[in-house]
Each structure stands twice: as structure tokens, then as C-alpha cells.
Design a protein around this nucleic acid. Structure first.
Lengths: 219, 219
DNA sequence: AAACTCGGAGAACAGTTGTTAACTGCATGG
DNA sequence: CCATGCAGTTAACAACTGTTCTCCGAGTTT
């Protein structure tokens, strides 16, 4: 077993991941700004001082969690853009909307803790974490915008307006995911959230379709 | 001075308010779940045990803060509904939108700490506080819906759809207020947020206007 | 096979936390 | 005017926090 490079590094990343997992679990019932270093190490079963080998702060841990969470969300977003992109213009958008909401719901079912963390810390008490989330979500909006720009409905749209629209979709996605997670365990409430989310997307879609009516240029 | 009823009660509410104010200030750089009882009393200048005369918990303090914050927001909302209600249908809605965003901006300038608190604890780590905020915002949406129902544009709308629309406006208001607060001190960023908020409202307004096009009933 | 690296353990530190108990003094109601 | 109520104080408690320093032992390098 010895003299095989990588064993040490693998062990290190293993406990690092254990710290991240334990923290994410503890953050179900509190905010990052109240998460204690000792609390996390105790949950993992390592000495408090071991924490410093991986993170400077709990804030640093938080930034790492942002990357982990929004990486998984990015995977879901890519799937969503691919799935809805191929049926652009097929129908009045109703199927597209239903598919979008269903994909969000599936993501929430798969990663509820990540959704909770992002929703909570997006406006939370730790500045670096807020900044990290904002930056990643801006990147998402950029990707959505580029997908929109590829579609025929985007003809005549200003870049700014496309980005605004993409931002609305991203924000709406996060809010819907958060609402769905809060309704976990109550299928009726979850159904209500789903129906509302679909109607909201329909409203935005209608606005999008008439954006250029009698409007040669945006003021 | 003695035998004058109310002196004692007035003093009590005075320190109670001092506790609330100090807590709100401390919550600028942390979340409620990490706010310590001693921290608050120290900032006010009273003994830690005095806290218990007013609140059971810091969570209890948080619920009181929700009521205070959303009471001031309710005043602003009423003013906004009155101001925009009287010019319903006057123009294409552009002035109405600008007035709405300006009123939100004015509110943020007047009560930034309240806005920060609501945005932060809406998805925060303290369940009773989350529930209190959700309940109050639902009441706001109800009021907005009733205002909408009074306007001629609402003819033919289902109750559910009107509430959905009102909810979108309330959510958008909170998000815009939060974004404006985060941009405090940077006039350029604040201007960007304002412009984006106006465009988003315009998009929703367009969707609203075409909601009933070729749609006899909502599925 | 010896030298080195480095993730983790252990103990100790000064400070902080929430909560309890018994108290003080003043506004209050009879 | 006196007895009661009650906001706020003082002191003490066990428990917990983040951080430092020293040390160990197994993976890694030469």
C-alpha cells in the first residue's frame, strides 16, 4: 500500500468532504454566521484543530459550499437549457414551461440542502459568501441569456434586455426552488407552488412575446 | 411626578425599543441565529438579565422585529397603492412604473436596516421568524390583489391569477429593495438596479395586459 | 532505508455564552 | 402612606467558543 502516491491527498479530500457534508447538514437549522468550527469537527469526529488544515474560517467553508452547491445547480441548468432549447417555438410555450418547473422540482428533490443553503446565504450575514453566490448566479444569467439569444424570439432584442430577462428567469428559479423546499413533506403545498410557478412563467413569457410591440427602442 | 400612571410602562417600552434598535443595528453584519442575548444588552447598556423582562429568546426578539419592520413597510405600501391607484389606465403604465420604483428607493433610503433584516431572515435560520415574514408578506399580497381587482384591467381575471400577480409584485418589491440596499453607497450600481427594476415591471405589465388573449379559462 | 512532509491529535488558554438565584429601589394601587 | 408589583441589577454557574503550541505517526521523496 505504501509508496503509492495519492493516498495521502485522497484521505485529505475525504475528510474535507466530510466537513462540507456535516456543515451542510448543520446549516439546515441555522445560518452560516452562527456555525461554529468546533460544531462541525465534532459532527465529523475529528479534532477541532484539524479544521484549519482545510479552511481558514467557517466563512471560507461557506465559500467552498457555494462552489459545491452551484456546481450541481449548474449541471441541472445545463440540462434544462438543452431540454427546452430544442423545443423552442414548437408550441405556445406551455410544454416548455411545465418541463422547466418539473426539472426544478426534480433538482430540489435531489439536493434540498444545497437549495436551502443558497437561498439562505444569498442574503445572509457573511459578505464573502453573499458575493460568491451573486457572482455565480450572474454567470448563470449570462448562460441563459446566450441561450435566449440563439432563439428566433430574440430577434430585435437589445443585449441589456436579454440579460434582464435571463436574470428574471434565474431569480425566479431560485425562489421557486426555495419555496418548493419549504413545502417539502406537504404534497398539497408543493402542488400549489408548482402551479403558481407555471403561471408566473407564463406571465413572463407573455411579456416577452409582446416586448417589442410598438416599441422601436428602449429608453 | 408619582401617582401618574404610565411612567413605569413608558420606561419599559423605552428600553424594549432600545433593545430592538440595538439588535437591528447588530444584525447589519450577522444573522439572527447568531445574535447573542448578551451582545444586545451590552449594546444598550443594561444587564443581560433585563432581556428576559421583554423577550423569551432572541428568536422572540426577531418576531417583534418582523412586526416593526413590516409595519413601516406596510405604510409605504399603502402610500404606493394610493399613489398608483389614482393614475390607473392614465397612460401606458410607464409613469406608474417609474413612480413605483422611486417609492421603493425612497423607502430603502429611509429604512435600510429594516429592508436588510427582512431580506435576510425571509430565508434565514430561525423558523418562527421565517413564518412571521411569510404571513405578513401574504397579507401584503392580499392587499395588492384587492387594489388590482378594483382596476378596470382586472376584468375577466380569476381570483387565483390576481393573487399570483400580486405575489409577483410583492416578491419583486422585496428583491428590488434588497438589491438597492446592497448597492448603497454606489450610485452607479443603484441606478443600474433601478433601470432593471423598471424594465422588469414593464415586462410583467405587458404580460398582464395580454393575459387573457386567446385564453378563455386558466387550466 | 533514512529523511522529510504534513494531516491530525491533544492539551491548554482566555473569553464568551445562556440561565439561575437572590437582591434593590421606585412607581403603583389600596 | 404604606404594602405590593415589577423593571432592572449583581453574582455566580457550567458549558462552550476560536486559537495557539507541541507532538505523533504514516505517507512520500530521495
Amino acid at each position: 500500500m505504501s509508496h503509492t502516491p495519492g493516498v495521502r491527498q485522497a484521505q485529505k479530500q475525504k475528510t474535507r468532504q466530510a466537513l462540507l457534508d456535516a456543515a451542510l447538514q448543520l446549516l439546515a437549522e441555522q445560518s452560516l454566521s452562527s456555525l461554529g468550527l468546533r460544531e462541525v469537527t465534532r459532527a465529523v469526529g475529528v479534532a477541532p484543530t484539524a479544521f484549519y488544515r482545510h479552511f481558514r474560517d467557517t466563512a471560507d467553508l461557506g465559500v467552498a459550499l457555494v462552489e459545491e452547491a452551484l456546481n450541481s445547480l449548474h449541471t441541472a441548468l445545463t440540462a434544462l437549457l438543452a431540454a427546452t432549447g430544442e423545443r423552442a417555438g414548437d408550441d405556445d410555450g406551455e410544454e416548455r414551461i411545465a418541463a422547466t418547473v418539473e426539472l426544478i422540482a426534480a433538482y430540489v428533490r435531489a439536493h434540498p440542502a444545497h437549495v436551502r443553503f443558497i437561498a439562505r446565504e444569498q442574503h445572509g450575514g457573511v459578505q464573502p459568501v453573499r458575493a460568491a453566490i451573486r457572482g455565480q448566479l450572474a454567470l448563470f444569467a449570462q448562460e441563459v441569456k446566450e441561450q435566449f439569444a440563439r432563439e428566433p424570439e430574440a430577434a430585435g432584442w437589445a443585449e441589456d434586455d436579454l440579460l434582464m430577462l435571463a436574470g428574471m428567469y434565474v431569480d425566479h428559479m431560485v425562489m421557486t426552488a426555495s419555496a418548493l423546499m419549504e413545502a417539502e413533506g406537504d404534497p398539497e403545498a408543493a402542488a400549489r407552488v408548482t402551479v403558481t410557478a407555471r403561471r408566473q412563467l407564463r406571465l413572463v413569457s407573455l411579456g416577452r412575446r409582446h416586448w417589442l410591440d410598438e416599441r422601436p427602442a428602449t429608453p
